[in-house]
């Protein structure tokens, strides 16, 4: 069964259609990369899947269940999102402990006392950080907290929106290793939005290239690595990535 299935998806903000006729099937346990220039609609796709961009037509199903347009608790438990900027996405006056307990409280699940330290350990956070505030943590530690929070409800899908773009490269490597290990250990399915093609090479199995709200090509990561993608725009992105200025 597909973990994520999108059919003829059109997504709008007000009168502006920003994603058009998008269809994708992502298998359970797969890591799928979504790349493309700025404004091409990558984040919008993730937002529609989680219910943050409610203005869509078409079909979104997770594990065979079609979702409605509203924020939906069962879907929240199944599918969580992690953002680029861990500082902006964490509450500045909430300790790590409070941040990680909150999803359990909202969903009426007990056992936070046990689950919080377990999840901290799984995400490589030293127990001494448990009662610290975001500003008392480094950027990498904050992103670990954001990932830990996303995993508290034991989701099966993680939507990752530029999760390492704000981090030092040495810290990026730690977080990428962490994401890879968590996926293996917990059988997670990922969609990874990134502007960084090498990150896709490291973490993903397949990728889609988006441009102006549409998918121009779906390819395997092997095609990316061997530079055998076929669409001219995909090839241009690969070219830019190897010369490295501008995303």
């Amino acid at each position: 069964m597909n973990a994520i299935s999108l059919r003829n998806l059109d997504i709008s903000y007000g009168d502006t259609l920003v994603v058009e006729g998008l269809s994708l099937d992502i298998a359970e346990g797969e890591c799928f990369g979504l790349v493309g220039e700025s404004g091409s609609g990558k984040s919008t796709v993730l937002r529609a899947i989680t219910g943050l961009a409610p203005d869509w037509e078409g079909e979104i199903s997770l594990f065979g269940q079609a979702r409605g347009k509203r924020i939906d608790r069962t879907f929240a438990a199944l599918c969580q999102m992690v953002f680029q900027d861990p500082y902006g996405s964490l509450h500045p006056r909430q300790t790590v402990d409070a941040t990680l307990s909150e999803p359990l409280t909202i969903h009426g699940i007990g056992g936070a006392d046990k689950r919080v330290p377990e999840m901290m350990e799984a995400c490589g956070l030293d127990p001494k950080f448990r009662f610290r505030l975001p500003h008392q943590l480094s950027g990498g530690q904050r992103q670990r907290v954001a990932i830990a929070r996303a995993l508290m409800l034991k989701p099966k899908i993680l939507l990752l929106d530029e999760p390492t773009s704000a981090l030092d490269v040495s810290v990026q490597a730690e977080i990428l290793n962490l994401l890879k290990r968590l996926r293996r250990e917990q059988g997670l399915t990922y969609i990874l939005v990134t502007h960084d093609l090498p990150v896709v090479s490291f973490l993903c199995d397949r990728l889609a290239v988006m441009r102006q709200g549409r998918i121009v090509e779906v390819a395997t990561v092997d095609a990316l690595k061997s530079n055998t993608m076929t669409d001219p725009y995909s090839r241009e992105l690969v070219e830019k990535s190897t010369t490295r200025l501008s995303a």
């Binding site: 490269v169 040495s170 990026q172 990428l176 093609l197 090498p198 690595k225 061997s226 190897t242």
Partner: peptide
Amino acid sequence: LLASVPRLDE
């Protein structure tokens, strides 16, 4: 630092 950066043909 250089080694920790993923490569396109990773």
